[in-house]
Design a protein around this nucleic acid. Sequence first.
DNA 1: GTTGAGCGTT
Length: 251
Amino acid sequence: MSHFGRSGPPDISDTYSLLVLNITFRTTADDLFPLFDKYGKVVDIFIPRDRRTGDSRGFAFVRYKYADEAQKAVDRLDGRLVDGREITVQFAKYGPNAERIHKGRIIESVPRSRYRSRSRSPRSPRRRYRDDYKDMDYRRSRSRSWDRYDCDRYRGRERDYRRRSRSRSLSPDYSRGRGRRRYDDERRSSSRSIYSVSPAKRSRSPRCSPSPHKTSPRGDSADRNSHDSCSPTPRSASPQGQPADSRSLSA
DNA sequence: GTTGAGCGTT
């Protein structure tokens, strides 16, 4: 969807796309258009939306006509407070026109001297998340969707879990209050569980079955129980945590 | 109604 009423990319012949991150979920292209248009010729503005809910994903793509204007907008609008949040404007790397960008046209066309390094964006290796939702399903872009999704995948995607858990400014899960309480509960639970059950039996969560029933009139406790079992806590499922205790009790 | 690392549509 384009801001100019044109469906899809209107003309990506000589346009330069900027990635606007950290915008609010309610910020639309109409809100970004007057901001970016003041610093250059904005060809098109596109805000990706969720495939399921159709809501904004929190970032937008602003397409400029010239690279110098785009760079100026990056330097000007990067860190600008929009709708109460500080947005992050940078050149888009991936996308449908990633090939022409890979040629080094945009990146080399703009002076990096003006590009101020923001400590909020470290050298985090980002992966192609498009391959994810195209490989298995639509991307679970929001963290709230990670409530009871695949729990078994946490073993192989522990890095993904840690990446989503951390925040760039405040505390990771602790900011939500939900993570710390559950985490503490898990730790006390695991410490108490080793005295009654061997870790070999609880190493695998038997409640990780993808039950189709999501909500019940009184099944709230059951749903919450699944949360504890499927909680991505590697320590509660680490058998090497207390080998001595487990050995003396298990044997 | 909520959320917050990241890279896009006809």
